[in-house]
Amino acid sequence: MKYRVTVLSGDGIGPEVMAEGLKILQAVAAKYHHEFEFKSELIGGIAIDQTGSALPAATLKTARKSHAVLLAAVGDPRFDDPKLPVHPEDGLLALRKGLGLFANLRPVKVFDQLVDASTLKPDVIRGTDFIFIRELTGGVYFGKPKKEWVTAGGRKAVDTMVYSEHEIARIVRAGFEVARARKKVLVSVDKANVLKSSRLWRQVAIEVSAEYPDVTLTHALVDACAMQLIRTPSAFDVIVTENLFGDILSDEAAQLAGSMGMLPSASLAGIPVSGHKTFGLYEPIHGSAPSIAGQDIANPVATILSVAMMLRYSLALETEARAVEAAVNSVLERGYRTDDIMAPGNTRVGTRQMGDLVAAEV
């Protein structure tokens, strides 16, 4: 079968890590007799330069005709001025909304070979392997009203955190489905002691739990969860939460793995049911890192693991996904490291060589 993949290399180190992700897909195609058709489009700063828009209409049109979208990085310091009318990140938000990508999956796994790469004690993070399910198209990032104005007493601004029962139920179901395929334990994170939207969130989560009697549901306040992620990260398996909390907590948890260059993500338009294909966008959680662009030192592993997630969730190719993950593990076991995870006794490699090594293992 031919699989159509929209390729969005974006800004900074994006083209470099994307090249390695595509290299892995080509290795998968050769071994398992698949065919991948890649269609490159623009997003982010490079799209603003060439079209004036962070998300050209052509990009969204191509993405909608694909089986999946693979994105590398968005961001350019030339557009950091908040007074500018358009920013690279606007393209990513518009893409998520335009494709209906409501479920963001961010796995956080501490590889045994990298327990010393984190600033936390090895005995605290060893065995950590959990996944965030973050609601991606609602909450304070999209709620109305959202504005800034001037009064006689000074400037004011407002953002609105709003959630419907439907939005909560579908992301919580995504959490339950992922938990059902793992250890059957789900933690729902909210701020129900303060926020009305969180109280509704907790009510709906409890109601949906009746559909999943085989999964144990517990609740955690977001501040308590933030503390426990540092104190006992290995205690978690699946965490489901709303947009803002998920954004903050998943970035905090990224440090457990020692580098953001190790962590992939998936943004899905449907509930991830094992063995079924769900349209999605796949990207490393790191940024565009313009300061190291073009130097062949960026870590491509997060992009490569994002490819594995794409194979699993959008193409239903579980065997191929596991092969890519096993290849990454094998390369790390042999001591190969990019700059961000380098330690004494390891062998330093660049972006391209790391991709070559993983592709060879596939």
Rank of each mutant, 00 (worst) to 15 (best):
I24M: 06
A57T: 12
A224K: 11
T6P: 00
V328S: 08
I292K: 03
I271M: 05
Q228C: 13
K121L: 12
R126L: 11
T119D: 10
V358I: 15
L217E: 09
V69S: 05
K191D: 01
V7D: 00
A269R: 03
L268G: 09
I171D: 09
A63Q: 01
V307N: 06
I168Y: 03
L42N: 02
A326L: 09
E333G: 15
G335A: 03
H166K: 10
H286S: 04
D251C: 00
P56Q: 08
Q353L: 12
L200R: 11
L281Y: 06
E148G: 11
R337T: 06
A152H: 15
I168G: 08
A63M: 05
D190H: 08
V194E: 04
S259L: 02
K61P: 04
D247W: 08
E207D: 12
H219I: 08
V158I: 13
A192L: 02
K184T: 02
Y212I: 07
K109R: 15
R231Y: 12
M342K: 12
A308N: 06
F111G: 01
T137I: 13
K156C: 15
V74C: 06
A257D: 00
V273C: 12
L99V: 07
A359G: 07
N299E: 01
R4E: 10
R170P: 07
L195T: 09
E207S: 10
H276I: 12
